[in-house]
């Protein structure tokens, strides 16, 4: 069980996402896979330097047992950015799908070149 740490889980997530990006031709699946990679990286950063039994860094309590607050503050920003970029890419995808009627990277480019 000692291998199931947050760090390892996040790396596994990252590579699952990478696999999806490399082999899936569906645009939706690509966007989902990139998001899995993104969250893998975010989970990695949140749990970096985590000490067991530490308490959340809220309020002025026991400073010695407090978890490292910096990654948590930064990752909120990273999550927000991830969501907004995903929103933008999904928006573009919807217009693309309406225009070309396919969700496949290769089909899209083939249809554009044929026209």
């Amino acid at each position: 069980m000692q291998y199931v740490t947050a760090q390892n889980v996040s790396l596994v997530l990252f590579f699952i996402g990478l696999y999806g990006v490399l082999v899936k031709r569906n645009i939706i699946k690509t966007i989902v896979s990139v998001n899995i990679m993104d969250f893998g990286a975010i989970l990695f950063l949140i749990t970096v330097n985590y000490v067991p039994d530490s308490i959340p860094p809220i309020g002025a309590t026991d400073f010695d047992r407090m978890a490292d607050p910096l990654p948590q503050a930064l990752m909120i920003t990273a999550i927000v950015i991830g969501i907004s970029v995903t929103a933008v890419s999904l928006t573009i995808f919807i217009s693309l799908f309406r225009k070309h009627g396919t969700a496949d990277w290769e089909n899209v480019i083939n249809r554009i070149q044929k026209r």
């Binding site: 993104d38 893998g40 991830g82 480019i109």
Partner: peptide
């Protein structure tokens, strides 16, 4: 739309590598 989508997704993909690098 294709150019824009390719640009966004590819760069988001690249920047996850950057973020993981920052984590390490």
């Amino acid at each position: 739309l294709y150019d824009g989508l390719l640009y966004v997704v590819l760069n988001l993909f690249g920047m996850t590598f950057f973020l993981l690098g920052v984590g390490f």
